[in-house]
Write a protein that binds this DNA or RNA. Structure first.
Lengths: 359, 359
DNA sequence: CTGTTAGCGCTTTCAA
DNA sequence: TTGAAAGCGCTAACAG
């Protein structure tokens, strides 16, 4: 049919010519910018012509003229390469896309010295706003320097006017304790991490560890249950060693439930329990934190855990960035998002509470 | 000092005026485009002036004029949200950045029907080339349709002219077997997955499973060692069940080494071994596949595994895309990248081979 | 060796 | 209601 498929890109002017109108009319019709100044039928004809010709607006030209690129920059310290970062990124790109924006991604690979250059690059690209995401939850001493609107993701500062979204770890830890206490456990242990396991600089460390620990201990105090805290670290082997320490003792002195600072540590605890011949959850309840992909859901048994609000962080961060870019006043500039409890199969009432000793 | 900080953006014309030259000279000086037609000292003066004024080229304007945006589009079926995808993405953004390009990321969230729209969006944005990355290694029946140069990442097609980079799973599985055989194991089991665990459509499934299995079995045949294959799946619980099946029998009939199709399955095997009171690697060697972040390295004991070439895939994909965008002829259009063996602590010679029974 | 000038494709003010 | 025309900031022919 279309014998002479046109090689050349079809421009607004081509549509205008084909429809017998001016470029102005085309622009108006396509952008719905008609302040009632373009007749419905003309508009319809223009739209049809554009469709027929396969017209696609030239985004770059549009950006040059309108001084907005409909794009957002995402600078990450290493999020793109962390197992959680993906969830933030996916939700962020999703939300951006729904709003006609696209995400420009720059990964610092933990080289903080590249930060300034990355931000300048994004400024040059005329992004409408910036997201700055960190791998672990951090409290920054200073936000990235730029004239652009910035939203901090998975990190925040002390300044109340700075835009940020981050997980409410304390809320999550409290839910973990309540879950265990509600089940009837009274002798608990927490497999905890260290302060600042990642960075050399004070503001680089992941602060989730102490927050989770302190909130858990505080909540335990409120509920009147005992907690033994063992600080070994976040990883599988750390959890294994910590669990071995509290579990390898006579039944009566052993905690009936463990709260692990991360799902990885919880997997270590699972390993230790298996090694010690303790059945989970019958002999020992274990609850993790993070709802880590491909891990929490498919351990044996599946892990009860506290889910980090990654998707929501990405989503809200973009919403905030867009609002700020549009010059709107943003409410709740610092958003601590709740962490949901996911009850799976690694937690149950303690033996003494059920009164029955199965198997 | 700078009492009157200029609000207005400084343009090339401003630099030209300040340096007492024409905009052309500025353009030439900044782009190194001088065909020897600009005096070194003029150039120096221009550069200094630009520096002093804090001039930043307006990328959008430049793109409009030069018809190249120095940006690459990345369409993923869900890579951004997978634990491996991050590594690809990080390496890709890194390489792009080093070459003055930026990455526009669009995540399909497994909605294949959005693919066409995503690609059109990227075309509108005038990206110089496209990367199409899939979460699991797939063999596509058709590549994305676009006029742009495309590089397939972690997937490929049967067409030899299509650009792609993907892992050489067969190579990895062969290395796994060689490692075990070299250690002296003669009675092995492979904890394998299913064909097509992910997608409804035939070309959506991850093909790594059967490739790894077949290559492992073939290599075993070559080395003359026995392999029992158990097909349960990729996840921790699948590995646990599969391992239980082959391990829960008298010592003489039990394999001395396990090859797990993924690190997750290997963790399941670790759990099963612990449950059964088998010491790893003394009683049982376990080797995984993937070198999964925050998992392989920190199990107890740390897992010997085969590393997927994620970073290299991201890196080479960008290099290929850039070359293709520049109109260069690309060699090795389909690149199967080798998978390295990482020897950690979960593998050792079998008891019978050492002749000693420790502990 | 340097400057003038004409666009890239689109939007939008202003006049018809 | 519609159209002409003037740029957005930069690059690259083409003169000078």
């Amino acid at each position: 049919m279309n014998a002479s498929q046109p090689r050349r890109r079809v421009r607004a002017a081509d549509v205008a010519a084909a429809a017998g109108v001016s470029p102005t009319a085309v622009s108006f019709a396509l952008n719905g910018r008609d302040g009632g100044n373009i007749s419905p039928e003309t508009k319809k004809r223009i739209l049809e012509t554009a469709e027929r010709l396969g017209y696609e607006p030239h985004h770059v030209a549009r950006s040059l003229r309108s001084r907005t690129t409909h794009s957002l920059g995402l600078v990450t310290d290493a999020v793109a390469s962390s197992p959680f970062g993906g969830r933030i990124l996916a939700a962020a790109t999703e939300r951006a896309d729904r709003n006609g924006h696209i995400m420009l991604v720059l990964d610092l690979h933990s080289h903080d010295d590249r930060e300034a250059a990355a931000i300048r690059e994004l400024e040059r690209r005329q992004v409408d706003a910036l997201l700055y995401a960190s791998m672990g939850f951090r409290i920054l001493t200073r936000a990235p320097v730029t004239q652009l609107p910035v939203v901090l993701v998975n990190c925040t500062t002390k300044r109340p006017d700075e835009l940020s979204v981050y997980p409410d770890d304390a809320n999550g830890a409290t839910r973990a304790l309540d879950h265990l206490a509600d089940l009837g456990h009274t002798r608990l242990a927490m497999l905890s991490g260290h302060w600042d396991p990642l960075g050399p600089r004070e503001d680089q460390g992941n602060v989730s560890g102490p927050i989770r620990r302190d909130a858990f201990v505080a909540a335990a105090g409120r509920r009147g249950v005992a907690v033994e805290v063992v600080e070994k670290g976040w990883e599988i082997d750390d959890g294994y060693r910590a669990a071995m320490e509290v579990l390898d003792r006579p039944g009566g002195e052993r905690p009936t439930a463990l709260f692990a600072v991360t799902d990885r540590a919880a997997v270590g605890a699972l390993l230790a329990a298996a090694r010690l011949g303790l059945a989970v959850p019958e002999d020992l309840s274990i609850i993790g934190f993070d709802d880590q992909e491909q891990m929490a859901e498919c351990t044996v048994p599946p892990l009860t855990t506290i889910a980090l609000p990654h998707a929501r962080m990405g989503d809200e961060a973009v919403a905030m960035a867009l609002a700020a870019a549009a010059g709107e006043e943003v409410e709740d500039r610092r958003r601590a998002l709740p962490c949901e409890l996911l009850v799976r199969e690694s937690t149950a009432p303690p033996r003494s509470a059920t009164g029955l000793s199965e198997r």
